[in-house]
Design a protein around this nucleic acid. Structure first.
Lengths: 143, 143
DNA sequence: TCTTCGAATTAGAATAATTCCAATTATTGC
DNA sequence: GCAATAATTGGAATTATTCTAATTCGAAGA
């Protein structure tokens, strides 16, 4: 399991050659380490420019490919706010997102103890939920 | 208040010249009546082609303008699923959306009695939520 | 009714995020 | 080391949406 300790995220070199059956190429390690390093919900473009610092030859298409690989292997979550560009989040625990309308900053929001959303919805009988996204927008305190 | 009775949605002509301070032009009435008529969460393009049947001269830009006017006046809700084109929903009651992955169909899902989402989230102190969107995806029954 | 003026509509161009494509390069299994 | 497979690359293509500038509409006042 990859450490989520905010104070010491892995460098690309520290990432193993394979995670959960996903081959970690040089580029995927770079992209993953960027997403793990600054947990500020970067867009693909953000990831691209941060990756370029260490790996100037990486292409935007590759960043998209790597993010897609990481997302589909469940190592990274894709976060959408309305029609804004997708953002990427390495926090795999059950949570949702709140966007501060003043600053655009996105905060992770966790559910209270033992809450299971599906318990609160009148879902059609026999529904199997495979994907759930909750997005909040608003202001914080005196902002 | 506009009737939400599924069996008889208003024709454009039946809509008043103003709703909630929003001037209802010919095009806005057309677009609104289309959204009210077939409550299947159409995209802007869907609305455009349906509107064209009665009003062949309407433009796509106008459809976008009208939808935006209706949304910002709270007469219609804009519904987003990940990076798919926005959809439009005339159901103003508190609800969220479930997309059947097999068919793409979107179903309205209501909350169980007395449920208030914010009660179940560890929101940062002083948070004021102005916008909330819950999107589910999955399969239904034997599908 | 006629005129005026701001708002709405229109067609088409522009934008921007993302995906696709075809060619090259890297990696794995033999 | 070699063939087969997968990943990367740059650039073109796609697509939903927004923008722009010109035209038209419609309400309100003269």
């Amino acid at each position: 399991m990859i450490s989520l300790d905010a104070n010491s995220s892995p460098t690309p070199e520290e990432l193993p050659p394979e995670i959960d059956g996903l081959r970690m190429t040089k580029q995927r390690r770079e992209v993953f380490s960027v997403v793990l390093a600054e947990r500020d919900h970067p867009t693909a473009n953000d990831v691209f420019s941060r990756s370029q610092k260490r790996m100037p030859t990486i292409s935007l298409a590759t960043v998209y490919n790597c993010l897609e690989a990481l997302v589909s292997h469940g190592l990274v979550r894709q976060v959408n706010f309305e029609r804004e560009p997708s953002r990427y989040c390495p926090n795999l625990s059950d949570h949702c997102h709140f966007q501060d309308q003043k600053t655009g900053t996105i905060h992770d929001v966790v559910f209270k103890e033992g809450v299971n959303l599906a318990d609160f919805l009148e879902l059609p009988q026999g529904t199997e939920v495979s994907h759930l996204e909750i997005s909040l927008k608003g202001r914080i305190g005196s902002n």
